[in-house]
Design a binder for these strands. Structure first.
Lengths: 130, 130
DNA sequence: CTGTATCCCACAAGATACTG
DNA sequence: CAGTATCTTGTGGGATACAG
């Protein structure tokens, strides 16, 4: 009684049982970091293996140095990305996913793949399926 | 030879084979819509079944009317959400996911669940695993 | 109840220059 | 190569008022 739930898959945490996503919930913050303009792209890029700063710059086409630095720092603080600097000249810094970051990327990759598969169709309006 | 790939799962579309995410790629736009501040929350809320405007307002705690309208319109234009207005007074409007939107939500739900499970730990810094 | 229409602004994001 | 430091700007997003 009460809510009739759709015949749907995918269980959400019990915390959302009432269907409300609380404003102050920490997951909002984390989600915002991940889904920031460049967050997803960086995480996905790193899911293919360690990358240097310049690699990431090239792969996330259009990102500015400032945003790359900022995004990496946020993801590092969140324990999703780890940074390994080698004290050589010229400097060499490698970024990689942490355990947690890798776990996350496994969820992100299908999403990006789906977006890619559907994007042209949707954005360029080939055939809006109902 | 060339790239050594990590022993990782998750295949990305061949279009990304060179590892570059092109600036003008339509998937960027779609991804931006989905991962907009309120996009994910609305899609997730709708994954549990049809919702009225006022339901969505309540569930996505903190959303303004402007942003609710804007988010819904974008998602509708992208063919992810459909709107059904009943010509009664007072007005009654139900929103639901399209096929495509439901497909997407199936990928989003695990992500949000993961974020919820890890958020407190990460954001409130209980134990940053390396 | 379900929205529009305005006004406003903080802040995400870009551009450019510079450094160890 | 791998970043910082500044300055600037566009726009995502909020508040409020009003309308069908």
């Amino acid at each position: 009684m009460g809510m009739e739930t759709a015949p749907h898959a995918a269980p959400l945490p019990q915390a959302f049982a009432d269907g409300v996503f609380p404003a102050g919930c920490p997951s909002r913050t984390l989600l915002d970091h991940i889904t920031s303009k460049w967050g997803v792209l960086i995480l996905i890029a790193l899911s293919e293996g360690d990358q240097r700063w310049s690699d990431l710059r090239r792969r996330a086409e259009g990102i500015s140095e400032k945003m790359l630095a900022q995004t990496l720092k946020t993801l590092e603080r969140d324990g999703l990305v780890s940074r390994r600097a080698q004290p050589v000249i010229p400097p060499r810094v490698d970024y990689s996913l942490t355990e947690r970051g890798y776990e996350l990327s496994a969820l992100l990759v299908p999403l990006v793949a789906w977006a890619f598969d559907n994007a042209e169709d949707i954005i360029n309006g080939v055939s809006q399926s109902k």
